[in-house]
Design a binder for these strands. Sequence first.
DNA 1: TAGATTGTTAATCGATTAACAATC
DNA 2: TAGATTGTTAATCGATTAACAATC
Lengths: 209, 209
Amino acid sequence: MKLTRLPHKTVERLSQYRKALMDCLESGKDFIYSHELGNIVHVTPVQVRRDLMLIGYSGTLRKGYDISELINLISRILDPNQIQNIALIGLGNLGRAIISHFNGKRTHLVIVAAFDNDQSKAGKVINGISCYHIDDIRDVIKKGNISMVILTVPPEAAPKIAETIVFSGIKGIINFTGTPLKVPHNVFLEEYDIITSIEKTSYFTQLIP
Amino acid sequence: MKLTRLPHKTVERLSQYRKALMDCLESGKDFIYSHELGNIVHVTPVQVRRDLMLIGYSGTLRKGYDISELINLISRILDPNQIQNIALIGLGNLGRAIISHFNGKRTHLVIVAAFDNDQSKAGKVINGISCYHIDDIRDVIKKGNISMVILTVPPEAAPKIAETIVFSGIKGIINFTGTPLKVPHNVFLEEYDIITSIEKTSYFTQLIP
DNA sequence: TAGATTGTTAATCGATTAACAATC
DNA sequence: TAGATTGTTAATCGATTAACAATC
């Protein structure tokens, strides 16, 4: 099923669908209609049906979608085949918040190591994650079989670190630093800038009568 | 100039352009070509020119764009006319990280109040921001002339709080809770879910050969 | 001048929505 | 059956890119 490259937006929604479906399952529901699921995730029923069409899932007419079947299918698509190890670089406020926000939420994605340039943090265990000095990135990435990195270092430090981790063979980066990064084509880069997000919200908020 | 409603993506890029331009100005540059700016922000030169066309800015042929002029124009468009007061609701790790990450970075957007349901935090000042109990939201929002909210409460708590703040007249919400929110049409809602973002990156990372 | 750059329209691409056949 | 629902194609919308005229 992992043959086709799904559209970005569809992948994002599948993640949302799964969460919603897990909540539904927990509350004792077995089947769900496209308009119900759409309602939770804030998407039109057509959008839901089209997304499910793209992953090749068929519901039952007049009965809707089998919730646990659908959860399993989405999981087979979204979750990596083996457990995927993630490193977090930059143990500031944001880095620690992300660790505690994410840790334990997903079984196939695990933050296994954290890096900081503060020597005093190296060797410690913060939120159950081993900390290393930033100079050891290359070694730890290779030995720890780490393929993804979450970047939460200060903006000035970002470009150099990006270069290092790309060189170490990292294939996916989530960049929270606010500094746009350049990476080769065979590295997936997701950027999120909180400040831009706040400015954007401010702009559109001002436009409201 | 605030007449036209700019495309979402253009607004996001304007925020990025401004940051890049401010860095350039600081390093002594006066003019910049579209391909230079595009290079920093990771966007094609045509994209840059088209965005600037949309805000009605003209450069000088063969000389490029006047950096400080452009910064001023973008600021006139992005920044609210008066200072816009923001509240942050949910003083967990993520909430505090956002406060310290954003505070002082922009003069026209200020986080002026923080809310939590932990009584012991009420009345204190955290990172220079006054904390209140969550029951006082309505009062503080109205008295403090707050029009935007950043939501970092636990997922279960989100829907009820969203209802309260919408009722209190909030016009813009940035929702980090991971629970999709329903808001009326005259409220701007920006949602960002870290877990979805990580899952998406994982998916596309797996697709790389 | 030749080459480089801006500004803008037209074409393309990606994502969403409308329309509707199929069917329980 | 009538009404509600799924699955899918075609149409539309929004955003990006290609193409190119203008000009310093």
